[in-house]
Amino acid sequence: MSIWEYANPKKFMETSSWALPWVAGLSVVCLIAGLIWGFFFTPDDFRQGSTVKIIYLHVPSAMMAINAWVMMLVASLIWLIRRHHVSALAAKAAAPVGLTFTAIALVTGALWGQPMWGTWWAWDPRLTSFLILTLFYLGYIALWQAIEDPDTAADLTSVLCMVGSVFALLSRYAVNFWNQGLHQGASLSMDKKENVSDVFWIPLLVCIAGFVLLFLTLVLMRTRTEIRARRLQALLARERLA
């Protein structure tokens, strides 16, 4: 019994069709609970007023924007090393989801920034890094679209993902160097003193769990679609040959 068993498309389809409703349901429950709790049952911040409540969308989507890229990197490495097609397709499936989370983080950030900083956009290091991350996602998706042969596309996008990760990290530090910024420090950290207080913290955790599960749901659904598309291609190819 090995974990690689799930890399078999058939096994993956069986397991995911069983798991998908649970993951999706749990994600809906967490999101509804977390967002309602966060929006209506937490006090206003003494400085930021009710605008602070956008963190329940902003922080989880920003986290997932980065985590999605990390997941793509891991899936790409698994494809390059072990040649499991499901892994390559999962990386392909995750990219638009990650891009959407990045867009949500940018838009909610702008909505929050307007009342707080008096501007929709500032060339702050965090904001700039997210904009650059958007470009990386776009390039990755465009490369997938441009190459016809699925295995070649999987290989080349995996190489791009690896090299891109290094340069994305470099860009993050370069941007920090370039401008010190307006953005507040991380909302969550291991250091208790830095953290937001517990009343905000618990509903935020619930929201984060909801976003992680939402990401999982979307990636599972999209990977299943990709597997079916590949299956369809194989069937059509077989029909042509027969």
């Binding site: 650059i132 470009l135 990386f136 776009l138 390039g139 465009a142 490369l143 441009a146 791009l160 090299v163 891109g164 340069f167 994305a168 470099l170 860009s171 530090y173 370069a174 941007v175 160097f177 370039w178």
Partner: peptide, 19 residues
Amino acid sequence: LLSLLVLPLYVPTLIFGAE
């Protein structure tokens, strides 16, 4: 496509060079 792929990779070089 080449521009789309390469320009994000140019970011660190541009930042340090212009700096």
